[in-house]
């Protein structure tokens, strides 16, 4: 049966579709009773009451891209750690628990060294 195999995927997809329908329904209901008079100053972006100076997508100082890089490293690491966490039981019963654990500790320590390097380079020091 198709549903037995794809049931999980179908369920998640249906829930996501229903979530989208919920928003669409609410916006539709609102469009029935809400006033709609476009134009004028209400379509100008809010900038504390004065007319906006320059566009909304001006150059801005993005200090966060270093964090994005750091995040990527740790996120990939986490993908490695999930299978390890699941199989730890299996290896412990096979008598390899200590080996597998030490291997992961080495892996984690290398990552922490990377984090320490980033901290030493002053990623978190803002002037």
């Amino acid at each position: 049966m198709l549903n037995a195999y794809f049931g999980d995927y179908i369920t998640v997809a249906v829930f996501m579709a229903v979530g989208a329908l919920l928003v669409a329904g609410a916006i539709f209901a609102s469009s029935l009773i809400a006033p709609r008079r476009p134009g004028g100053f209400k379509e100008v972006v809010y900038e504390s009451g004065i007319e906006p100076i320059g566009g909304g997508w001006n150059q801005s100082h993005i200090r966060y891209y270093v964090f994005a890089l750091l995040f990527l490293i740790f996120d990939v690491e986490a993908i490695f750690m999930f299978p390890w966490a699941i199989r730890l039981d299996f290896f412990a019963e096979a008598g390899l628990g200590i080996t597998v654990l030490v291997e992961m500790i080495v892996f984690v320590v290398v990552l922490v060294l990377g984090l320490l390097y980033a901290l030493a380079k002053g990623v978190l020091r803002w002037e």
Binding site: V45, G55, G56, N58, S60, I62, Y64, A68, F71
Partner: peptide, 18 residues
Amino acid sequence: SANKYSLIGGLRAAAQLI
């Protein structure tokens, strides 16, 4: 939103959430 407040808020949110 093309709004400076929104952009700063959005970037802060992204950095915080990751």
